[in-house]
Amino acid sequence: MAISKAQVALLVVVAMAAAAMTPASGAYNGCQQTRMVTVQNLCGHDLTLAEFPVANSGHLFGPGFVLRHGTHAEYHVCSWTGSVAAPDAAPVEFHVGPDGGAWYQVSNTQQGGSVRVTVTPHGRPLQGHCPAAGCRDHGQCFAHAVPGGNCHNVEELKIIYYAP
């Protein structure tokens, strides 16, 4: 049986629509709920961010992304694993799973750089041990990692850059 041009065009449209609905992670298609990764810039100047996705994670924002001072960007993901970095700031490594499990770490000895960074999970309610990690402005520091990755029910992982 021959396929008409109209049927081919319809198949192309359906395939493009399916590709557009693929989660940002690109690896896991069984999400019941997407998670959010929010990056906020309170450091006093614009930041050029770099991302380093691993484990088949898709891109959050792509190369050369500039986050303007006083703004934030939100990324909806099924799951994501990798790190985010900004000049003069400690790199943030994290994983957000499709089931709401999270693991994250960032140095809490950020004395040398001109930018401080924290990672904070949000959820209703968070379960397990989910401390803020990293350092805020005025030298206030927290844990550096989630012990044993025991943080669950994460709906949003928030990364905030601060001036020292």
Rank of each mutant, 00 (worst) to 15 (best):
V14S: 12
A73N: 09
R124V: 05
G139Y: 01
C31K: 09
A133V: 15
T48P: 00
G26E: 12
P87G: 01
G123Q: 06
L49Q: 06
V66A: 02
L42M: 12
A2D: 07
P91K: 08
T109I: 09
W103C: 03
R136W: 01
T48R: 11
H72D: 10
V54T: 15
V77I: 13
H138C: 01
M1W: 13
G134D: 02
G139S: 10
V115G: 02
D46G: 06
D88P: 00
E93M: 11
T48H: 03
H129W: 11
Y161P: 04
F65A: 00
T81F: 10
A163T: 05
W80I: 05
A55F: 12
F61V: 11
C130W: 06
Y162K: 05
Q105V: 04
N29M: 13
H59Q: 15
V115W: 01
P91Y: 09
S114L: 04
G112V: 06
P121N: 04
G82H: 04
Q7D: 15
G101N: 14
E51V: 08
R68N: 09
S114Q: 08
A15N: 10
S79D: 15
F65P: 00
Y162I: 01
P164L: 05
P98V: 14
G139M: 00
S83C: 05
C135H: 02
A86W: 05
A73E: 11
H59I: 07
S79K: 11
E74Y: 04
N108E: 06
G139A: 05
A73H: 11
N56L: 11
S114P: 00
V84T: 14
L67T: 02
T81G: 07
R116K: 11
F65G: 01
H152K: 11
A17F: 12
S107F: 03
E93P: 00
C78E: 07
V66S: 08
H59A: 14
V77C: 08
G100M: 04
G139W: 00
M36Y: 05
T118G: 04
Y28D: 15
T34M: 09
A133W: 03
A73P: 02
E156Q: 14
G70V: 04
G62I: 02
H144W: 12
S25E: 12
T38K: 14
A17V: 12
V92G: 04
L11N: 15
L60S: 07
H59Y: 11
S25R: 12
F61L: 12
G44F: 04
A89Y: 03
P63T: 12
S83Y: 02
L67W: 01
C151Q: 02
S79E: 15
G134Y: 00
A9D: 14
P131E: 06
T118K: 03
I159D: 05
V14Q: 15
A20Q: 11
Q110N: 01
N29W: 13
A17H: 04
L42W: 09
F52L: 10
Q111F: 01
E51Y: 08
H45T: 03
H129E: 14
P91G: 07
I159W: 03
E74K: 14
H76T: 14
V8Y: 03
A145Y: 08
G123Y: 03
P53S: 07
V84K: 09
